[in-house]
């Protein structure tokens, strides 16, 4: 196997661990070692793992907030436009913009838009749907949804080097190490 040929077809190198604690420690050391392009794979969310990986973001909450705001404005604006501008209708002598009556629908629109923001935002930032992903080429990876904990250092990391990265992962004492084909 020619070395260069392999490198060009590699997505990364993956190490398998059997406990969340081992994975958190491995993620911390990978970060300290200077790797930035790596990800962990776990059957359930593990608290403290993203901190150990040094990942921090609040894109989803901001998206939800902005969507909620748009929803509320849309809901209120819709009622004002239809009841006061497009077809002003005198109902029992009330103001055309009888705002207390518009609150329930404003609220419902806010929740509806914010919920879509949360759902679609989560999928979009995660790059889903993803019909194909290289990590699934590793046969053991089916257990990422059952009981195993994986860490994959990706080839696009500037520090990635097939030999040295493998040796480093070896020092983390994993159950197994596999090369991930792209």
């Amino acid at each position: 196997m020619a070395h260069a040929a392999v490198v060009s077809r590699v997505y990364g190198i993956m190490a398998e661990f059997d406990s969340p604690e081992a994975l958190i420690e491995a993620a911390r050391r990978t970060r300290v070692e200077g790797y930035r392009r790596f990800d962990c794979y776990t059957p359930f969310p593990i608290h403290g793992l993203t901190d150990a990986m040094g990942v921090r973001e609040a894109k989803v909450p901001w998206t939800v907030f902005i969507c909620g705001l748009i929803g509320a404005l849309f809901g209120f604006g819709l009622q004002v436009y239809t009841s006061a501008i497009d077809y002003p209708l005198n109902v029992g002598g009330r103001d055309f913009i009888s705002w207390p009556y518009f609150i329930p629908i404003t609220f419902e629109c806010m929740v509806l838009f914010a919920a879509f923001g949360a759902f679609i935002g989560m999928l979009a930032y995660n790059g889903l749907p993803a019909p194909y992903h290289p990590v699934f080429n590793v046969p053991q990876f089916v257990r990422a949804s059952v009981d195993r904990f994986f860490l994959c250092i990706e080839a696009r990391d500037p520090k990635f080097d097939p030999e040295r990265t493998r040796t480093f992962l070896q020092s983390l004492n994993p159950i197994s190490i596999s090369e991930v084909e792209a």
Partner: peptide, 18 residues
């Protein structure tokens, strides 16, 4: 195509809580 990525889980949990 969910792949149990830790970063995905983070956004997932945040969206779920919201």
């Amino acid at each position: 195509g969910w792949r149990n990525s830790a970063i995905h889980w983070m956004r997932y949990e945040s969206a779920y809580l919201l």
